[in-house]
Design a protein around this nucleic acid. Sequence first.
RNA 1: GUGCCUAUAGCUCAAGGGCAGAGCUCCACUCUGUGGCAGUGGCGAUGCGGGUUCGAGUCCCGUUAGGCACCCCA
Length: 434
Amino acid sequence: MPKDKKTIKKVVASKPKKKGYQSVKGMHDILPKDQLYWDKIRTETKNLADYYHYGRIDTPLVEQADLFEKGVGEATDIVEKQMFVLKGGKDKLVLRPEGTASVVRAYLQHGLTHRPQPVKLYYIGPMFRKERPQEGRFRQFHQAGFEIIGDGNDAIYDAQIVLSCYRLLESLKIKKLDIQINTIGCKACRPDYRRRLVDYYKKKKVCNNCERRLKTNPLRILDCKDNKCQEFKKDAPVILDCLCADCKSQFKGVLEYLEELGLPYSLNNYLVRGLDYYNQTVFEIFAEGFDGALASGGRYDYLAKILGGKDASAVGVGIGLERVIAVMKKNEVKLTAKQKPKVFFIHVGSLAKKKSLGLIEELKNAGVRIGEALGKGSLKAQLRQADKDEAVIALIFGQKEAFEKSIIIRDLATGSQESVLLDKFIKEVKKKLK
RNA sequence: GUGCCUAUAGCUCAAGGGCAGAGCUCCACUCUGUGGCAGUGGCGAUGCGGGUUCGAGUCCCGUUAGGCACCCCA
């Protein structure tokens, strides 16, 4: 009986269980089409790192939760609620939410403290934070990072980190870069500033969020978006007035180096960072095409000590690669795609098909890159493919050719073709390509 | 984590509660060993699970994913 077509379809379709799997929230596949961007980023990062002598370091994706709780800060959102905690086992393990703590851990663990200081390292890899995803913010995302560890808090290292990051973004054709920079003082002077800030804001009617920030992280009040809070900001104490002599001269030094380099920076006394380990220099880099920061970093002189190691001043930066790619796409940065092969191999018939893999090997050994559609049966389909791939010449190898030990070389633009013997066809192909 | 918006074919988009459609892509044929162009045909979808209804892509609830604004951050 011709029952309703739709009903039949539904019954059939619903039989084989569910529809299928999809990648989990905030985690994405990177398809071949997008690998162009990633290749570009990887090569530019490596080139720059080689030039400035950063050694590559890869640390595990999984670390002790402790490392970040101590390092990044117990009260930060990242640690408090954004870490992926692994179930099972007696240790509390987490997927790393950022790179710096791991790098410092490795620095201490492997005695890099006994290498010539400073130790300069770079990394590139995935990080994990359990946030609500939106554009430029994912649960698995990638960062490239540069770190300079050891040898005191010389301002020239801060400048070199900013420079490295800036040049990398430049090499990726990201335009209208804006470096925002600030200092947040040190153990000696920050508490003083913090106190003055709290005293000031305690008397104001700040928004609910800032009410909370007042207790957890008062410096954060400074970048509140609430209108009233913005107003209060005008008369709020300024960090620069509270700096100790060392912090003052350190910051001055950083700015002087940046000026010497001609890097365009703007002073932003309201810039603070969310991670606890920062001190003195903090900076973020912005570009047209994305609202948030593309990269951010700063000095973290206390981290090594916090992690139980010896004192080691350090400065570093992390670059959000998905954000970089978002900007590259908006700027329509052109990437040179891998050149398509100009020669296309076509087989006809089973005998020829049998010999085709071997022939292609010969061409490969001779350095001729080749396109093919070996699984397709008809000559027509293969030629159509050759056309789509924008091949210049086609090599047609059929039953007859297999017997005669020859092959047809066809010029795809003109349609003219000739048969040549197999022992000299490679030479002919190379001649045609010139 | 909070609030709001969205979800139809591989892609871009249609369909007043009443037969799920188009363009592009892909595949095939016209042309059985010769491509592009053209013509013809084909594959292929209402994210998932419930509910209301004679009838749901359309209305309601839940869920998953995406986006926006927060929070926060790369």
